[in-house]
């Protein structure tokens, strides 16, 4: 009895409740979206102001005159860093992706004794604070004459990128049914044959995830860049130098920040889905 009575009386109230909760959900979402985008608004607006206009009292107002001087200055200051970063990030990403793919293939499809211990030990390498290896690393790089060179920094990023690239590919290949490989090995294909003919052709999504992840990480990295390659400043170091010197105007700093962020932002906006996958893979089980 009571149940039916309640059911009869609720529909109109439920409907208004539902409407209100929808309004609340959207209001909150829009509020947070505005909050998250506030710094972006500030960056873009400040960067188009002329130097005379960068004034604390008018900080939140739109520029009166539209000026691209700040962008021009920022580009001049940042250009060497941008090109250094591209020269670093492309080879480092490609090499670590290839090595990660091979490692992931071995660890997921070829059982060998000790693999269950070796893999977690490898993974530990991506969680350590790099300060704990920095002093011997610098010494080692000088002893092999790679200190302060681009190849040196590439080597560093390849090595310390191995755990995450191996992890992503291992989890990716774990989904590939073993029957597929067994069929191939009956046909007489060996380790490389199976990799080349069966595994590699279906690896594209894995490579996209890994390449995007490594690209973003290496582009944004600062600690290695500022210690191992001071003389070939990467974009993050160039930006910090520009921001650290007191004489550079805020409009230039904002334009430079935006310039430094453009490559990773483009990748994120175009391939966000794969970026999120790499992100979640970082929490080991994903």
């Amino acid at each position: 009895m009571t149940v039916t009575a309640a059911a009869q009386s609720t529909p109109p109230r439920r409907l208004t409740n539902r409407l209100w909760s929808r309004v609340l959900v959207y209001a909150l979402l829009i509020f947070f979206a505005v909050l998250f985008l506030l710094p972006v608004y500030m960056v873009i607006m400040t960067s188009f102001k002329g130097t005379a206009e960068v004034n604390i009292s008018t900080m939140w107002q739109l520029p009166q005159t539209f000026s691209i001087d700040a962008w021009r200055t920022a580009y001049e200051r940042l250009a060497p860093g941008l090109s250094n970063s591209f020269l670093l990030v492309i080879p480092a990403t490609v090499i670590s992706a290839i090595l990660g793919s091979l490692n992931g293939y071995v660890l997921s499809k070829w059982k060998f004794p000790g693999a269950n211990i070796i893999f977690p030990l490898m993974l530990f390498g991506m969680f350590i604070p790099y300060q704990a290896i920095l002093i011997p690393l610098v010494q080692f790089m000088s002893s092999i004459k790679l200190f302060n060179t681009l190849p040196g920094l590439i080597l560093v990023h390849v090595v310390y990128g191995l755990p995450i690239t191996t992890l992503i590919f291992r989890n990716y290949y774990a989904e590939v049914p073993n029957e597929l490989l067994e069929a191939g090995s009956i046909d007489g294909a060996g380790f490389f044959g199976l990799y080349w003919k069966i595994v590699l052709p279906i690896s594209l999504p894995g490579f996209v995830v890994v390449i995007i992840w490594q690209f973003t990480q290496i582009w944004n990295e600062f600690l290695f860049a500022v210690t191992v390659a001071q003389n070939t400043p990467m974009v993050t170091v160039a930006l910090q130098n520009l921001s650290g010197s007191q004489i550079v105007q805020w409009n230039v700093q904002m334009a430079a920040s935006f310039l430094a962020a453009i490559p990773t932002l483009i990748v994120y906006v175009l391939l966000g889905r794969y970026f999120i996958r790499g992100l979640l893979a970082g929490s080991v089980k994903g």
Binding site: F36, P39, I56, F222, M254
Partner: peptide, 27 residues
């Protein structure tokens, strides 16, 4: 989702420079 997640694609250096400007006490 894109809006809430985009800062993850940025460098901490970029975040630092931008927020240093936003946290300027007199502006």
């Amino acid at each position: 989702r894109t809006i809430f997640l985009f800062p993850m694609a940025l460098s901490f250096v970029v975040t630092g420079v931008v927020w240093k400007w936003l946290f300027n006490p007199s502006s």
